[in-house]
Computed example of a mutant assay.
Amino acid sequence: METQMTGGCQCGRVRYSVTVRDDEAYLCHCRMCQRATGGVSIAFKNVARTDVRWEREPERYPSSPIARRGFCYQCGTPLTYEAHGHDRLDLTIGSFDDPGGFVPTEHSGCESWHRAWLDTSHLPASRTEENPSLVKRWMDKVGRLPD
C-alpha cells in the first residue's frame, strides 16, 4: 500500500499531505503524550520526514530534551511528535482527513496506560445528532453539525 493522504488542524490553518506506505499505527500512553494532549493516550502514524509536505508548517515547541511537538497555535491541535536527529516523525491519527483506514498494531509507553480506557466498547454510545442541546447550539451558531 502506498497512498497520498492529507490532514491538518481543526481550524484548517495548518495542512499537510503525506505519502503513507502502510496502514500501521500505534497508541502512545506515556505521561508526556498524556500531558501534551490531555488524553489517556494518543494515536500516531510514523512516517518518513521526507514523505511529509506542509502547506503551512506547524508551530513547534521543545516538549523534552529529546523531541519537539508540532501544533497549530491558533486552534491548539497537536500534529506531530518529532525526535531530534531522527529521519522519521509521528503524525497524530486524528489530524488526518480520513483516519479510518489505520490499524493499531502496538502500544508504546505502556508503563502509564490506563487499562480501563483500552476497551470501552461495552459502554453506552450515542451519536452527536442524538444530543438535542448540542445540536441546537451548533445549528444556532453555524447552521450545521461539525464534520
Rank of each mutant, 00 (worst) to 15 (best):
G39D: 02
P58D: 04
S41D: 07
C30V: 05
K45E: 04
K45W: 04
A43T: 10
P58N: 07
R15G: 08
N46H: 12
C28L: 06
E59W: 02
Y26A: 12
E59G: 11
C28W: 00
R13A: 13
H29V: 06
T37H: 14
G12C: 13
E59K: 10
E57Q: 13
D23E: 15
E59F: 03
Y16M: 10
F44Y: 14
A36R: 04
K45N: 05
Y26D: 10
T19Q: 12
C30E: 03
V14R: 03
G38Q: 10
G12E: 08
E57N: 11
Q34E: 06
V52A: 06
A25M: 13
V20T: 04
V52R: 02
D51C: 08
N46R: 15
D51Y: 08
Y26N: 05
S41I: 08
Q34P: 01
M32N: 13
R21L: 11
V14Q: 03
A25R: 00
V14W: 06
M32K: 09
C30I: 05
R49T: 09
R31D: 11
Q34M: 02
S17T: 14
V47R: 02
T37V: 04
V52D: 05
L27S: 09
V18Q: 01
I42K: 02
V14L: 04
T19S: 12
R56S: 05
A43R: 05
R13L: 09
A48R: 14
R56F: 03
E55Y: 11
D22C: 08
S17D: 11
Y16P: 03
A25K: 02
V40D: 07
D22Q: 04
L27K: 05
V47F: 07
T50W: 01
G38K: 10
D23Y: 09
R53T: 15
